[in-house]
Amino acid sequence: MISDDRSQLQPARFYTARIGVDGDGVHSVDFTGTHPFRQPDGSVYPPASAGDGKVVDPEELRVDPRGCQYVWAQEGDRPKSSSDPVIQPSIQFAGRTGEYRGQHPLPSNYRITTGDWGIRRNQSVEAITFGAWGGLLTSAVEGPLIQDGPVPDLERGALIRVTQQNRSGQMWGQFAYPLEKIFAPSDPTSPWGPDTGVPAILAFPDDPDRYLVLERTWVAGSGYKIRLYDATTRGATDVRNMDSLNGQQVVPMRKELVADFDDLGLSTIDNTEGMTWGPTLPNGEQTLVLVSDDNFVEDAVTQIVALGIR
Results as ranks from 00 to 15, higher is better:
V56Y: 01
P58T: 10
E59K: 04
E59L: 01
L61Y: 04
V63H: 03
D64A: 06
D64V: 02
P65C: 07
R66D: 10
C68A: 13
Y70L: 15
A73N: 00
A73R: 00
Q74Y: 02
E75C: 07
E75T: 04
E75L: 08
E75F: 05
G76C: 07
S81T: 09
S83M: 01
V86Y: 15
Q88P: 04
P89I: 04
P89E: 07
Q92L: 03
Q92H: 04
A94E: 02
R96V: 11
T97V: 15
G102Y: 00
Q103F: 00
H104E: 01
P105H: 02
P105Y: 03
L106Y: 04
L106H: 06
Y110L: 11
Y110C: 12
Y110T: 10
I112G: 12
D116G: 12
G118E: 07
G118N: 10
R121V: 12
N122Q: 11
S124C: 13
S124T: 13
V125I: 15
V125L: 10
E126N: 09
I128W: 02
T129E: 12
T129R: 09
G131T: 11
A132D: 15
A132K: 12
A132Y: 00
W133E: 12
G134E: 01
T138F: 01
T138R: 02
S139A: 15
V141D: 13
V141P: 00
E142D: 02
E142L: 02
G143P: 06
G143F: 06
G143V: 09
P144V: 09
L145H: 07
L145K: 10
G149A: 09
P150E: 10
V151C: 03
L154N: 09
L154R: 11
L154S: 10
R156L: 02
A158Q: 10
A158W: 10
R161P: 03
Q164M: 12
Q164K: 13
Q164C: 03
Q165C: 13
N166K: 06
G169A: 11
M171Y: 03
G173L: 08
Q174S: 13
Q174M: 14
F175E: 05
Y177F: 15
L179N: 01
L179V: 14
E180Y: 00
